[in-house]
Write a protein that binds this DNA or RNA. Structure first.
Lengths: 205, 205
DNA sequence: ACCGTATGCAACTCTGAGTTGCGATAGCGT
DNA sequence: ACGCTATCGCAACTCAGAGTTGCATACGGT
């Protein structure tokens, strides 16, 4: 991926690349996208400014590259045999990732002005659509077990689960901890059991 | 409010101030905070750069001033006699405001790198805490009518109502329309009726 | 009509983006 | 171990935007 030309001279390049990406992420976490300077990144990476410009077209390309590598959110999908605990585990895993240093940095970056870079918006949407899609199997198992109404919309349920957690993260200063995750799971479950998350939500009441 | 010093020379000053604030908002909407230049604002306002610097300390002060004036979210609190319609109206009003040109600009600004300005974070939090607080009377009326469990947490209910809407706004590309508002109202109501939004949520199940 | 104040204007400094040419060096194959 | 070559360091640029200053001018209230 890196030096696709001849496969030569890989060692040095790889080291520089790693150092610059790490430095960029750190700078992004510390000062945000608007205050991101190439000189600072270069200094932090122990590399000269021109070296960065030789490997990346401009600031945007560098940021896209960094976030593209970091945006893998491997939340393991549980199968505990019960929706209650499945949903709870998903919510807890989301909270754990989002409050981790890496998660916090990614989030801050994704919701900074870096979001004006076309590639970033897509990555963000994809990030939040992958989870609900992957979780749908857990929901359909719950439906088969009779724990949820048969017409439950899996993606809608997961979004209902995540939304209040994300709301806390982005807006409120309330703590985002395990208790919050458990509470969100209870709320989403209650709504689903009441049939408010059916896929045919065109006919209200 | 504006020229508190002697009350003199108000006419010109007020016009300039208005023009600059409007231009700043427009530039913010068009290019975001990171790409906000004083020269562009000045040109757009038909004013010279130095004039702006004489009235505002720097770019940050200007942005704080603009957002401070615009951040009034007067969502009228309904009293229809039923929680169903009360919640639905609140959700619809929120959606209407958030999808209006003014609302969109404010939102974009509030979630740009402008959020690194200390004053903006406070304003944002306040913006989202005022709603739930104001809505609590509607909820307590519903509790008194017996429509909701007696220990329902009013603020939690409103947050549960808003969160999925906000999630759509910030993440998903799904449309944020009246149907979405109604759906959110139904979900929040179902959770509340199931007792998942009680203020004593320390004991689950 | 007058006076004071705010605005327009030009010319500055400073910082950071992005570029270029050249010399130094580190890693690869042999 | 040694040479070859791509990559890196360095210095010196251009360009744009933040923020400042001194002076001339136009506006608005009395």
């Amino acid at each position: 991926m890196s030096t696709e030309k001849h496969g030569r001279q890989v060692g040095r390049g790889a080291k520089v690349r790693t150092a610059v990406l790490a430095a960029t992420l750190a700078e992004l976490a510390d000062h945000g996208y608007a205050a991101l300077t190439i000189d600072n990144i270069a200094r932090r990476a122990g590399v000269h400014k021109t070296t960065i410009y030789r490997r990346w077209k401009d600031r945007e390309s560098l940021v896209v590259d960094v976030l593209g590598e970091q945006i893998a959110v491997d939340i393991p999908m549980p199968d505990t045999g019960s929706v209650d605990t499945d949903l709870r585990d998903i919510a807890r895993a989301f909270v754990a990732w989002v409050t981790s240093p890496a998660g916090q940095t990614i989030f801050a970056a994704i919701f900074s002005d870096a979001a004006r870079i076309p590639g970033i918006v897509d990555a963000r949407r994809q990030l939040f659509e992958e989870g609900p899609r992957r979780a749908s199997s857990a929901i359909s198992r719950a439906v088969q077990r009779g724990e949820l109404p048969p017409d439950t919309d899996a993606e809608e349920l997961i979004k209902t689960l995540i939304a209040p957690l994300y709301f806390r993260l982005a807006i409120t200063t309330e703590p985002l901890d395990q208790a919050a995750a458990d509470h969100a799971a209870r709320v989403a479950l209650a709504a689903a059991r009441a049939g408010a998350l059916s896929s045919t939500n065109t006919n209200p009441q």
